[in-house]
Design a binder for these strands. Structure first.
Length: 413
DNA sequence: AACAAGCTCAACCGCAGCAAT
DNA sequence: AATTGCTGCGGTTGAGCTTGT
């Protein structure tokens, strides 16, 4: 590489670690802890720089690392979190115990990105590829390189050139998830004010600052999503006093989050929740995920898919127009290599995704409209919270309760 | 069998943020 | 206020492996 590096300067060893080196480092850290990383190699008798030791420990030697391939649940969670956090790998990794940011980054770059593309979803924006491509000029069909620059890169360049505040391009390009989470922050805060279950929760003091932007709430108050998720007691989201959590619904969460065990019967959850937990039936991913059996109209998969598909003709749905649009998009994609299931998956990803859906709710916009900052037509966007509109779309009583809960919590989102 | 292309993953790099001086 | 050192992060590289021709 020929570039300057601390290892080069100090003539230290580089490259793969030998078992002996591993043993030395492991023994040293086990015995003394790492303390100041820059002094570790000397103390451990290694010809490495501290940075290299730290990396080796974090990515390989740490005893709490989970080895092996990623489970489907983990992959799903990564995709969800990426939609919210973008390439903030360390924050994503914080939600997956035993996984490193490097590991997740590698998985994303080698596998998940491709999966999303194949399903017609832009891995950068988490929007339909065609929609993304329609916004650009010299872009190919599936996000691959055109003239040496991928469509995603073009998008980034575009957004980069159009901004002046110096923030990362992804902040603009990605879905407005920060504005989505904020209502939950508020709802949660209000719930927690009168809750007896706050003992274990370190609720941020400026949690519900009314003049604070939603972005501030999300990104500043909770410096990370992991904070937000960690603080978030599930039952406060999904149920109100009239609808306490049932064993059945709890069982659903167990299946959805089985990668990380937690006690569903405790007063609150202390493990970081998947964003999909907000909307249990949203089924953001392929329907290999178990469909809850306890909920209305969700008793079998075919029924669910049927309901979702039939929504496209539901004139009352605020997402009617976008459904039609995306259906066309996916059908066009399917003319390539996509299967019906993939198209459905992509459809579900967008229209069942709690992030996108709540963004729509919050801004009174359809998900795509929200992404594009296009104001929806008024007849599609009722002023009141459209409870009934979501039922056919989500076919989820729990989701409806979520909305009611939010409405009860702070009225007009 | 040989080669190329694609993929995976460990490791390196530069940079930014922070604290100490 | 400027400098220095440390840490953590995200982007990138490249060796080794797998798969396809």
């Amino acid at each position: 590489m020929g570039r300057h590096s601390c290892c080069y300067k100090q003539k230290l060893r580089k490259g793969l670690w030998s078992p002996e080196e591993d043993e030395k480092l492991l023994r040293h850290i086990t015995k003394y802890g790492h303390g100041c990383w820059s002094s570790v190699p000397k103390q451990a008798g290694l010809q490495r720089c501290g940075k290299s030791c730290r990396l080796r420990w974090i990515n390989y030697l740490r005893p709490d690392l989970k080895r092996g391939t990623f489970s489907q649940e983990e992959e799903n969670l990564i995709i969800e979190l990426h939609a919210v956090l973008g390439n903030r790998w360390s924050q994503i990794a914080a939600q997956l115990p035993g996984r490193t940011d490097n590991e997740i980054k590698n998985l994303w770059n080698s596998c998940l990105k491709k999966k999303l593309r194949q399903s017609g979803i832009d891995p950068v924006t988490h929007k339909p590829l065609l929609e993304v491509e329609n916004n650009g000029d010299n872009q190919d069909r599936d996000g691959e390189k055109v003239g040496g620059v991928s469509s995603n890169e073009l998008n980034l360049l575009k957004s980069e050139s159009s901004r002046s505040d110096g923030a990362s391009s992804y902040e603009q390009n990605r879905p407005s998830s920060s504005t989505v989470i904020a209502p939950y922050n508020k709802a949660y805060a209000r719930d927690m004010e009168g809750s007896s279950s706050t003992s274990k929760i370190n609720t941020p003091t400026n949690f519900i600052s009314s003049d604070c932007s939603t972005k501030d709430l999300f990104l500043d108050t909770y410096t990370t999503t992991s904070d937000f998720m960690t603080y978030f007691p599930l039952h406060n989201i999904n149920y109100n006093n009239n609808n306490p959590p049932t064993n059945e619904s709890c069982r659903w969460f167990s299946t959805q989050t089985q990668a990380r065990p937690f006690d569903i019967n405790t007063t609150e959850f202390t493990f970081p929740l998947s964003t999909s937990s907000f909307l249990p039936n949203s089924v953001c991913y392929k329907p290999s995920l178990p469909v809850p059996s306890d909920d209305i109209s969700m008793n079998n998969e075919s029924q669910y898919w049927e309901a979702t598909a039939s929504n496209h003709s539901n004139r009352n749905s605020p997402f009617n127009s976008l459904h039609n649009n995306t259906s066309v998009s996916y059908q066009m994609n399917m003319m390539g290599s996509q299967t019906t299931e993939e198209a459905r998956w992509a459809d579900e990803y967008l229209h069942g995704n709690p992030i996108v859906m709540l963004a729509a709710l919050h801004n009174h916009q359809a998900p795509e409209s929200l992404c594009n900052d296009i104001k929806p037509t008024s007849h599609l966007v009722p002023d009141a919270l459209p409870h009934h509109h979501f039922q056919p779309l989500q076919t989820s009583a729990i989701f409806t309760r979520d909305i009611q809960k939010l409405t009860a919590a702070f009225g007009h989102i």
